[in-house]
Design a protein around this nucleic acid. Structure first.
Lengths: 118, 118
DNA sequence: ACTTGACTTCGAGCGCGCTCGAAGTCGTAG
DNA sequence: CTACGACTTCGAGCGCGCTCGAAGTCAAGT
């Protein structure tokens, strides 16, 4: 199990160290363990959370929403609520994907025709 | 052919009038015709451009990139460049869609298991 | 003629998601 | 022992995408 510093973990997940600190402070990932000097020490568990947050961000979920999800997921009795949030999120994503599919088709058609209607 | 005011056109495309003026000023849509009093008059053509811009925005394309595309599309000799931009955009979208597919699958699995791993 | 109301431009302001600079603390290398 | 570099917190700053308020113009209704 790796014990990474903030900048190592950041690089590992494609973030800057500053952004990663921000993520923790904003609640996008649960609090990270510290060594005796107060420095963050990241384990596999933390990396998984970070990657999850990065994924949600890349799909356009807002910081506040992700933080809410993480907060709920941390609670022992939060399972039901957590499920609701996930279902809602999947629904949003599928709507987004439908738009995407449509747009890809339209763009493909334009390209195929080598003609772009204004 | 409809001759809509800015607020009518905005409503039609799911924007605010303010946002729509901003879109024109920022070049997300080509300049709109005016009546003698200087008020914008939107036709079908303009609505199509607006809907196109809205679509691109909803897919996360930045204002500057959309403006660039519109600028190129306006030029008589811009076809090649326009094609390049569209191809690039389709590629980005397909990458995004792959992420989306993956994430939907993962979330579905979590839901199916009625268990969320941290 | 006058009010009403939707339009115009302009510049400032705002929320989000970081990003950066300052000032301080710690541990290892020389 | 000292110096260096990476870490810490904090608050301010920034770019983006609007959003709002002010001040003015115009056209239609009474």
């Amino acid at each position: 199990m790796p014990r990474l510093s903030v900048s190592e973990a950041a690089k590992e997940c494609g973030l800057t160290a500053t952004a990663l600190r921000y993520y923790e402070q904003a609640g996008l990932v649960p609090p990270v363990a510290r060594d005796r000097a107060g420095r963050r020490v990241f384990g596999e568990h933390d990396l998984a959370w970070i990657r999850y947050a990065v994924c949600l961000r890349s799909l356009g979920m807002g910081v506040a929403d992700i933080a809410r999800y993480v907060r709920v997921a941390q609670r022992a009795d939060g399972l039901d609520e957590q499920m609701v949030l996930l279902v809602e999120h999947v629904e949003r994503m599928e709507k987004q994907r439908a738009t995407l599919d449509h747009f890809i088709a339209v763009t493909r058609a334009k390209l195929a025709a080598n003609y772009v209607e204004t």
